[in-house]
Design a protein around this nucleic acid. Structure first.
Length: 455
RNA sequence: GUGGGUGUAGCUCAGCUGGUUAGAGCGCCAGAUUGUGGCUCUGGAGGUCGCCGGUUCAAAUCCGGUCAUCCACCCCA
């Protein structure tokens, strides 16, 4: 018999890990709900025609494909097979794949259900996604995304409220973060002013790596993509201007640049007078790769001043995409959304010991019985406790006490109730506090009162 | 896709430049303690050394291949 295993990049979760994960999901969910977002779910499996071409060439490679059922070779592309062209062959033998993110399925959802929802449609979604990436630390092939998006409204009010959601979720989790804000139109404006508008994607890709490779590295990468030294220097000067008012005159000659500045001012105006607990700042060097964002973009990182021990990439990101549903034939629907990186948040909370106490054990009391008769008696007493809303359990057989106590210990149950001949006769049960070791005899009602009080 | 590390008991690992019966800690089981867990002590079970091949009188150890896994890069959460 071979040793059991699970696919690379996937994980099992033990009970205490699931409880901690659920604490994060619940916190995020509660804030989403408070801000008026509604839950939806979409299938894990989507048609590849829905997914392909939406995440760039790299993304397509990382899509998990599902082999067609039945005699898939009968309909296979024989020419591709002959040519050993795996990519082309795959198109003919797999028509489904696992979802890669939650945004594209959401766009599909909006188009398919446009008559059942009203715009603006505010939805949240907490579900796993899959990527055939090579796993490494903090990166998995199966992981959860927690997204909130608004479809069908241009109002910058939503940018402001999504920033508030970031602020509130991390406040509730007890984590200090820095929320960074920028606008793709400002980046586009910079490209125009510097005269490299035709290199916009290359520019954003390079800027995005600033944290990692520094200015030297960014300049090298810009040079490699055919951007001259003069443009590099000018661009660097613009990116160093982290004050909107100072940047505005420098982008005066770019229509896009002016629009970007104006949008950010509007977002700031909405947040005027609002109390935020986290550090929110305009960061002109925030670029967010080459994704589909067109307006405001956000990113959240752990505040290393407050938590100097943490080294972690972004734990959340999002932004505005002017044409959410265009790829599915529905024009004029703008979208804006944010995403929480739950797995990374978990690692950070764990490293900082920020999970609340008492998350790990729900069971309050374990019954320990000594023989057949008391075991049956204990079963009825346990049922009464459960009826009273107290999480109770009974060791499945009246074996040696040592074994049962050991089990209680391993579970981490705070209380044990001992049921033997004496208890059966007197009708009073022996309640033992597993931490202090103290024990005393009580009626069932008294026990219910004690356990309720100790919850 | 590129580069590197690691595969030895259920888990974490030791085993020096090849040399008889492959070890430790934790965990598990039993006992010290037949109505009391955590701590301690005693004993026990548990391993085709990832797999295939090569070198050698001799391979866990050296070499080649293969598979798995982890880490870094690309990209991303």
């Amino acid at each position: 018999m071979s040793k059991p295993a699970i696919p690379k990049g996937t994980r099992d979760f033990l009970p205490h890990e699931v409880r901690k994960r659920q604490y994060i999901f619940d916190t995020i969910r509660q804030v989403f709900e408070l801000w008026g977002y509604q839950p939806i779910e979409t299938p894990a499996v989507e048609l590849l025609s829905t997914l392909m071409g939406k995440y760039g060439e790299e993304g397509d490679k990382l899509l998990f494909r599902i082999l067609n059922n039945g005699d898939f070779l009968a309909k296979a592309d024989r020419e591709a097979l002959q040519l050993m062209d795996s990519y082309r062959l795959a198109l003919s033998i797999a028509k489904r794949g696992l979802r890669y993110d939650l945004t594209v399925p959401f766009a599909r959802f909006v188009v398919m259900h446009q008559h059942q929802i009203s715009l603006p449609f505010k939805r949240y979604q907490i579900q796993p996604v899959w990527r055939a990436d090579r796993p490494q630390k903090g990166r998995y092939q199966e992981f959860y995304q927690c997204d909130a998006d608004v479809a069908g409204a241009d109002s910058l009010m939503y940018e402001a409220e999504l920033l508030q959601i970031y602020d509130e979720v991390f406040r509730r989790l007890g984590l200090k973060v820095r929320i960074k804000l920028n606008n793709r139109k400002i980046l586009a404006g910079m490209a125009e002013v510097v005269g490299i508008a035709d290199h916009f994607t290359a520019m954003t890709t390079a800027i995005d790596k600033l944290d990692k490779i520094g200015w030297e590295g960014v300049r090298a990468e810009l040079a490699q993509r055919g951007i001259g030294a003069e443009a590099q220097t000018e661009l660097q000067k613009l990116l160093h201007t982290a004050q909107l008012d100072a940047l505005a005159p420098l982008l005066e000659n770019s229509e896009l640049g002016r629009a970007g500045i104006e949008e950010l001012r509007t977002v700031w105006a909405y947040l005027d007078g609002i109390t935020l607990h986290q550090h929110l700042s305009f960061d002109p060097t925030l670029a967010r790769g080459l994704s589909y964002y067109t307006g405001c973009i956000f990113e959240v990182v752990v505040d290393t001043d407050a938590h100097p021990s943490i080294r972690m990439g972004s734990i959340g990101g999002g932004g505005r995409y002017a044409d959410l549903t265009g790829i599915f034939g529905m024009k004029g629907v703008s979208g804006v959304g944010i995403s929480f990186g739950a797995e990374r948040i978990y690692d950070v909370l764990e490293a900082l010991d920020l999970f609340p106490q008492g998350l790990t054990q729900a069971l309050q009391v374990l019954f320990v019985a000594f023989d057949r008769d008391t075991h049956r008696f204990a079963f009825r007493q346990m049922s009464a406790l459960r009826q009273a809303g107290i999480a109770a359990d009974l060791y499945p057989e009246p074996t040696k006490m040592k074994k049962q106590m050991k089990y209680a210990n391993a579970l981490g149950v705070p209380w044990v109730i001992l049921v033997g001949e004496d208890e059966l006769k007197s009708g009073k049960l022996t309640l033992k506090n597993m931490q202090s070791g103290e024990q005393s005899a009580h009626s069932l009602d008294e026990i219910i009162a004690i356990l309720r009080a100790s919850k």
